[in-house]
Amino acid sequence: MTIRNHIYFASDFHLGSFPKESSVSRERNIISWLDFIKSNAAELYLVGDIFDFWFEYATVVPKGYIRFLGKLAELADLGVKIMFFKGNHDMWMFGYLEQELGATIISDELELSLNGKNFYIHHGDGLGPGDRKYKFLKKIFRSTACQWLFARLHPNLGIGIAQRWSKHSRAASNAEEKFLGEENEWLIQYGKELLKKKHYDYLIFGHRHFPYDIKLSDNTQIINLGEWINYSTYAVWDGEELRLEKWNS
């Protein structure tokens, strides 16, 4: 009998980002990781920017990712619980992934209690000090009016615009990001503010492409999951310990 007692967290796959060949290779790497975890995974948390662009029209979704989605379907059929967080690149998720995979869609933060430990999970976009321009744009992009207007565009035009924009994204640049130090990492600053209001044992974020695992105090750990363009990092909870690990296929 298979014992499923591990929980996995990953983010920022940026599937579909320019160039296409890099995305296809990355998809194969991710699938090999999913094959690895399927033997003991109870839950899988995909913490945003899984797709470099995603928009669900009433009868159309973006082409591609068929092997990735098929592997997720396989995990779901095995009983693995799948959670999708909306990121800044794939915030326009509506009902398709829920219907096809039985996934749960998380729009913002999620708080969990596992084995007496408190978890706070968020993609990370729009948190912390500064970046007022993006915070303003996020409100517009998430508005029902903006979504309704974009849905009026023919998919060839709407998705085509998004794909052209993808060529200028930081995912397409393939540049490795660097750790800026605790005083300059805004998600660390956000985490410290959270802890003033409530205790969490674990804070888990994506969005910031550099992976890190830091003790904010004797009993609080913050992890940024990193991206899969350069790092292929993820976190795993075995019921007692949360670890940041690197996948080597």
Score class of each variant (00 low, 15 high):
residue 13 F to C: 06
residue 17 S to R: 09
residue 20 K to H: 13
residue 23 S to R: 02
residue 31 I to N: 04
residue 33 W to H: 10
residue 34 L to E: 00
residue 35 D to P: 00
residue 40 N to A: 08
residue 42 A to M: 06
residue 42 A to D: 07
residue 44 L to T: 00
residue 48 G to R: 02
residue 48 G to A: 06
residue 49 D to V: 07
residue 50 I to F: 02
residue 56 E to Y: 12
residue 57 Y to V: 11
residue 67 R to Q: 13
residue 68 F to S: 03
residue 71 K to L: 05
residue 72 L to P: 01
residue 73 A to S: 12
residue 78 L to P: 04
residue 81 K to F: 03
residue 83 M to A: 06
residue 97 L to N: 03
residue 105 I to H: 00
residue 114 L to E: 01
residue 126 G to N: 09
residue 128 G to W: 11
residue 130 G to Y: 05
residue 133 K to F: 15
residue 136 F to A: 09
residue 138 K to M: 11
residue 143 S to F: 10
residue 144 T to H: 11
residue 147 Q to E: 14
residue 147 Q to L: 13
residue 148 W to I: 09
residue 149 L to F: 15
residue 149 L to T: 07
residue 158 G to I: 04
residue 168 H to V: 12
residue 172 A to T: 09
residue 175 A to F: 05
residue 181 G to P: 06
residue 185 E to W: 04
residue 187 L to R: 04
residue 192 K to G: 02
residue 197 K to M: 10
residue 202 Y to C: 00
residue 203 L to F: 07
residue 206 G to M: 02
residue 209 H to L: 06
residue 211 P to M: 08
residue 211 P to R: 04
residue 212 Y to R: 07
residue 215 K to R: 14
residue 217 S to A: 12
residue 218 D to Y: 14
residue 219 N to V: 09
residue 220 T to R: 04
residue 229 I to E: 01
residue 230 N to D: 08
residue 237 W to H: 02
residue 239 G to R: 00
residue 240 E to M: 11
